[in-house]
Amino acid sequence: MQVEIHPKKKEMVESVIERLEKYDAVAVVDLTGVRAPQIHEFRRKLRGKVEFLVTKNTIFRKAAERLSNKKRGIVKLAESLRGSNLFLFTDMSPFSLSILLNKSKVKVAAKAGDVATSDIVVPAGNTGLPPGPIISEFGKLKIPTRIESGSIWIASDTLVAKKGEAISADLASLLSRLGIKPIEAGLSLKLAYQDGLLFTEKDLSVDLEELEGGLKLAASHALNLSVNVGYLTPETAPLILGKAHAQAFALAIEAEYPMKEVLSRALSLAHSRAAALSKMAGFEEGG
């Protein structure tokens, strides 16, 4: 007996299928600890590049099963899903997407218990808040204030939390009142799929500095090898010609080839050698 799918669920399955057919890649972000404002901010930053969708794993699995003949390996991704997930659909490669997400971290409001991702400084200036009981909150956090023109002013820039310190409920509340979003938050990919290939979080962890260093070293080795074997390219030609010229000049000097430039250098070299030989033999100049 075939089980009827609820119209709403059927609509959600079709929505996932439409996106899987439209885009080259799909990536999965673990939603644990991710706040709604983070997702909204990332949606805004990545609009036009990435489409976001929160849906149940069962819905995604049904969509993947429907596309198993068209999208080789997509069922394997669906079977690997665990927990609450955010799905990112894009035409970018998973590696480019991972790098983009790392570069696109957003600032979010602090909550009690959050760990400061950097030093948190409350800047001097007009808070726009009227005097009242809130002044005691500033005092509790040792933030110097004054009253001016009917507003609370912070007298000087004040460090209220160092990087790595836990944020108290009082501090989180005050920062929120001041409109300060001090926590840097990002989205980390745990799975991704493209062209029949499944990528894990470890696969997608790209150290750009290490990668850049490796590419520079490889390019340097390749250039040296090309020059040494005489492989001509627009990049190696000047180096190969320069090397050939230097070797030819050195050979001409040793052979005392009758050219003005060569003879001048040959005579200079002969004089140096004669002086060195004279010193070794114990002769005095002019003796």
Rank of each mutant, 00 (worst) to 15 (best):
D195K: 15
S118F: 08
E212D: 08
I152H: 03
K163V: 06
Y193N: 01
S136I: 11
G164F: 05
A169Y: 10
R146I: 04
E165I: 10
P130M: 11
K181W: 00
L198Q: 05
A185W: 04
A161Q: 00
E212T: 13
K105G: 07
I147R: 05
D207F: 03
S205D: 13
D170E: 15
L189H: 09
P144V: 09
L198S: 04
T200E: 09
V160L: 05
F138Y: 13
V108C: 04
I135P: 01
I135G: 02
E148A: 07
R177E: 08
D195M: 09
G196V: 13
A112N: 06
V121H: 04
V106Q: 02
G139T: 12
K190S: 11
E184K: 13
D114C: 01
L198G: 06
V108A: 08
T117F: 08
L191I: 06
L171T: 07
G125C: 09
E184P: 01
D203F: 04
T145S: 01
E137Y: 14
V122Q: 02
K105T: 14
S118H: 15
I135S: 12
P130T: 14
I152S: 07
S168Q: 02
I143H: 08
S149L: 12
T200M: 03
I183H: 06
A166H: 01
L178F: 07
P130K: 15
E201Q: 15
F199R: 02
I180F: 06
R177T: 12
G186N: 04
A124F: 01
A185C: 03
K163H: 01
K190V: 10
G125Y: 09
K181S: 14
G196E: 03
G128D: 00
P144C: 10
A110G: 06
Q194M: 15
F199I: 03
L159F: 07
G179Y: 05
A169T: 10
G125F: 11
L189Y: 04
L175F: 13
A116C: 04
K181Y: 05
K107A: 12
K107S: 13
A161E: 00
S104F: 06
K202P: 04
E201L: 00
A110C: 03
A192Y: 00
G132E: 04
L171D: 00
P144F: 03
V206Y: 03
P133G: 15
S149M: 09
S118D: 12
V108K: 01
L189R: 08
L204T: 06
L191S: 03
F138K: 11
L189D: 08
N126Y: 04
G164L: 01
I147A: 05
S173F: 14
I147F: 03
A169V: 10
A169D: 14
S173H: 10
V108P: 02
L159N: 07
D114R: 12
L175G: 02
W153R: 07
A185K: 14
A166D: 00
P131Y: 10
S118M: 11
K140Y: 12
S173A: 14
D157E: 12
L175P: 09
V108D: 09
G139N: 15
L208A: 13
F138C: 02
K142F: 12
S188I: 05
S176A: 11
E165T: 07
A161V: 06
P130R: 14
S104Q: 09
V160D: 00
N126M: 06
G164R: 10
K202E: 15
G214T: 04
A124W: 01
G214F: 02
V115L: 05
A166G: 12
A112I: 07
I147H: 03
